[in-house]
């Protein structure tokens, strides 16, 4: 009996076409309430647990820092002393008295510049390393050493070279975020299936066509992994670099707040930095998901 059922199942799966099943599902009339109900449930399932955890942590923090003698401010104190920073991200009250939104945007502008340069240079360098056995042997050890150098260690050298804080900060972002892009692109290029190379050879694609039509789409999932790691590192680097170079960015704001003993402001700035980094990561991931649609071999 069991045998027969298994056999029938097998026959069904071989005969039935996947697409027609999908179509049947799509055509099945789902009552509106049921359809939206599922979405609403999914939304709450994603939102409610982190909210509960956040509330518990804030409560715990409040309890621990309740004493007037505690070194760190409690959430309620942060709210009472720094709620202007939370509620008005885009105020302008003077050249150095800006809302945190403006400061984040200034830092983002530097990241966009440095990370943009790193993306282009990193992908090109990665392609060379991935394509050429010789370049790979020569450059890979160098990359492996350089990528472990902490972002701030580059700052004195770049200050000496550029003699200005703005390009120095951008260079630090560039040099921090380029390594994962180079290394991932190289792996992606090395993993282009021989089949695609054969197709390109039969079609006699030239180097330029091979780059755009085969290499980039085939390596795209790897490239975007590299970009995603890179954008995270850029954000780490800029905050650190701005603490030392000064100016308008969010990093300098923290340093300035520390020097003038405004601890609650620092906590608010940290939240801004965290949320911005999270959003950056999600944006790159979303672009990657869109760009590599269908790129997985079947």
């Amino acid at each position: 009996m069991t045998m027969q059922i298994t056999k029938n199942d097998l026959v069904d799966t071989t005969v039935a076409d996947d697409r027609s099943i999908d179509e049947l599902y799509a055509r099945r009339r789902v009552p509106l309430v049921e359809k939206h109900g599922a979405r609403i449930r999914a939304f709450f399932a994603a939102i409610v647990p982190p909210m509960i955890v956040l509330a518990i942590l804030l409560g715990l923090w409040q309890l621990l820092c309740l004493a007037p003698s505690s070194a760190l401010p409690s959430p309620s104190r942060i709210w009472s002393e720094a709620n202007d920073l939370i509620l008005h991200p885009f105020f302008v009250a003077g050249p150095q008295d800006l809302g945190l939104g403006w400061r984040v945007l200034t830092s983002l502008q530097r990241v966009a510049f440095g990370f943009g340069l790193a993306s282009v240079a990193g992908v090109l360098l990665g392609v060379i390393v991935g394509q050429s056995q010789w370049a790979m042997r020569g450059l890979d050890p160098l990359f492996q050493v350089l990528r472990t150098v902490p972002p701030l260690a580059w700052l004195p050298i770049s200050l000496a070279a550029f003699r200005d804080s703005y390009p120095s900060a951008i260079f630090v972002i560039f040099i921090t975020s380029i390594w994962p892009i180079v290394i991932n692109t190289a792996v992606g290029v090395r993993n282009i299936p021989q089949d695609y190379r054969n197709v390109a050879a039969v079609l006699r694609l030239n180097h330029f066509e091979f780059f755009w039509k085969i290499m980039i789409p085939s390596a795209a999932p790897y490239i975007f992994t590299g970009l995603r790691i890179g954008v995270g590192l850029s954000w780490l680097a800029i905050v650190a670099a701005e603490m030392l170079t000064g100016g308008v960015g969010i990093g300098f704001f923290i340093w300035d707040a520390w020097n003038s003993s405004r601890l609650p402001d620092i906590f608010v700035a940290l939240a801004y930095i965290g949320v911005t980094g999270f959003v950056l990561d999600r944006i790159v991931a979303a672009i990657g998901a869109l760009a590599t649609r269908g790129a997985q071999a079947s």
Partner: peptide, 19 residues
């Protein structure tokens, strides 16, 4: 002695570009 479209190949695993 080099590949070319005058000798087009149908590969065993189809080798279509998935993107």
């Amino acid at each position: 002695d080099t590949p070319g479209p005058d000798r087009a190949v149908v590969f065993q695993n189809h080798s279509l570009l998935p993107w």
